[in-house]
């Protein structure tokens, strides 16, 4: 019917219009920008691959890359298992007050990044910061002067990010857990499998697809981390750039040193990494579905 042929385009129009204007157009511009050095339309020179060449030799870019990688891996391997654990705990049918616990666990995601940045900037201070005091209280051998924000910036940010986003991921996992077939679980119980076995052989396989999705989203998100460390470190990248991340470097180059060409190059390298990751994920999950 004619209706069903034009209908999809009508439905897609708002999205496509806005997309073409506000994403596609600036995107194409940024590709062009990455091949230029510019100070306004009158002062623009084409430099070809120069920006990219500089990027591969730039020690600050290397630091940013490594820091971001550490953060992404740390986040995935720390946050996701904890989120899954919490989801398992909060999914138990015999648990009373579930809604309240869920709200509490989710609530850090409700606070804006500004305050979290201020908050954790204080939590990680030497001597009187909350964390050092608490650790010293429980483990008296802990050095009160442990300088989180000087030497161990990335671990500090992983912890801060864990506090802030774990609840979010927990909700995703909760959704996945509620999708696990009750019949399968009961059958396993009847077969005599204990809780651990049920987990490994029934639950894990059932949530594999969504777990893969969550991992992908988490990696993509954490490779773009910027606001949290920037705010915790007081709008700097930390001593010896120990807190410098890829998007932070992009921001500093584009908006502080005003080198839009180089910033675009950094952005594109990051985009390519993300695209490769997404493609890899697609291939992996397609492989499993067969």
């Amino acid at each position: 019917m004619n209706r069903t042929r034009i209908a999809p385009f009508v439905f897609l129009t708002p999205f496509l219009l806005v997309f073409a204007t506000f994403i596609l157009y600036p995107l194409v511009q940024s590709v062009i920008l990455s091949t230029e050095q510019t100070y306004g339309p009158e002062f623009t020179t084409f430099v070809g691959w120069d920006n990219y060449r500089f990027l591969f030799e730039d020690p600050r870019f290397h630091k940013a890359f490594i820091n971001t990688l550490i953060f992404a891996l740390g986040s995935i391997f720390l946050q996701l298992p904890i989120a899954l654990g919490l989801a398992l705990l909060l999914n138990q049918p015999w648990l009373k007050g579930r809604a309240i616990y869920r709200l509490i666990v989710f609530s850090p995601a409700l606070i804006g990044t500004i305050f979290v940045g201020v908050l954790f900037g204080i939590v990680f201070q030497k001597r009187f910061g909350l964390l050092n005091q608490a650790l010293h209280f429980f483990f008296p051998i802990w050095d009160l002067d442990f300088a989180w924000l000087e030497h161990y910036i990335m671990p500090a940010i992983i912890i801060a990010s864990l506090w802030m986003w774990c609840g979010y991921n927990m909700v995703y996992f909760l959704a996945a857990l509620q999708n696990v077939s009750k019949d399968l679980l009961n059958a396993a119980k009847i077969d005599g499998a204990n809780a651990w076995h049920r987990f490994i052989h029934v639950v894990l396989p059932a949530i594999r697809p969504i777990a893969g999705f969550i991992m992908l989203i988490s990696i993509i998100g954490s490779l773009q981390v910027f606001e949290l460390p920037y705010l915790m470190l007081g709008a700097t990248s930390g001593i010896q750039d120990r807190g410098l991340t890829l998007v932070m470097y992009l921001y500093q180059t584009g908006f502080e040193t005003n080198d839009l060409g180089y910033a675009s190059a950094i952005g594109w390298v990051l985009a390519i990494i993300l695209i490769l990751l997404a493609m890899g994920h697609r291939r992996l999950s397609r492989g499993e579905a067969e």
Partner: peptide, 28 residues
């Protein structure tokens, strides 16, 4: 729906997920 260009658009949507937003701020 099934229509021509569906897979192209789907790929566009998926790829939009991986574009770092900070890249676009200045042009926007």
């Amino acid at each position: 729906y099934n229509f021509r260009g569906q897979s192209v658009i789907t790929v566009i949507v998926l790829s939009a997920l991986v574009i770092p937003h900070t890249l676009l701020i200045a042009s926007q």
